[in-house]
Amino acid sequence: MMSRFFSPNLVLGIAPILLVIALWQGLVSFGFAPAVLLPPPGFVFGRLLQQLVTSTFQHEIAATLIRLFAGFAIAVVLGVSIGIAAAASPAINAVVRPIVRVLAPLPKVALYPALLLLLGFGHGSKITLVAADALFPILLSTYYGASTVEQKLIWSAMAAGSSRYEILFKVVLPAAMPSILTGCRIGLVISCIVVFLAEMITSTDGLGHALVTAARTFQAVDMFVPLITISLLGLVLNGLLGVVRSYLLRGFPEA
């Protein structure tokens, strides 16, 4: 989403962000909002830098990242394999398709209490929730990509002597790659969001937990810090995925 971030229009793009920060600063300095409720930006960013070097906060980030990556990885593996299988086999398609139609619009957060009951309050339930939420965009875009592979690419490979099974890996998978990566990008952001929410709802560590703890003690500054951190994490991970994407899709037009 919102691609071409690093465009020559960067200056124009930074303007609204600066504007928001200036507005924020203005609200505080002109006394419209008490600093207790809305700490000035400089204070918040100072706090962020100060927190980033403490081992407790690094520990929270690590907990969040582990859950995020584990859930996202499961979603990618399951999503891509189910997506390709559903596109290639009518039998699998007949089973997967209606189930996906039912499960995709289902708010997965609602399953979280059930996951807590079944898998306990540890990593398991949060990783499962992340995987469940990130799975569908990846699965659907893989399926879409695999179903719309150009017929003549497949024919060309068949004529060159590839078997159907080989074609699945040598033609369908790479040809569906742009679509798969779009799904992964959506899935990654969803993972960021979901892991944070799950930690907010119930957890003993992680960034979401840090926010809830701050909220309980009305520490407005400490509430902003984890939020900004997850936003930055999202940006960095999105950027990394962008690098992977432009490498994998270097042959594709418009990539």
Binding site: M1, M2, F5, L10, G13, I14, P16, I17, V20, V189, C192, I193, V194, F196, L197, M200, G208, L227, I230, S231, L233, G234, L235, L237, N238
Partner: peptide
Amino acid sequence: PLLMVIYPVP
């Protein structure tokens, strides 16, 4: 860019 920054915030 503003939307990019807001996007991953839950």
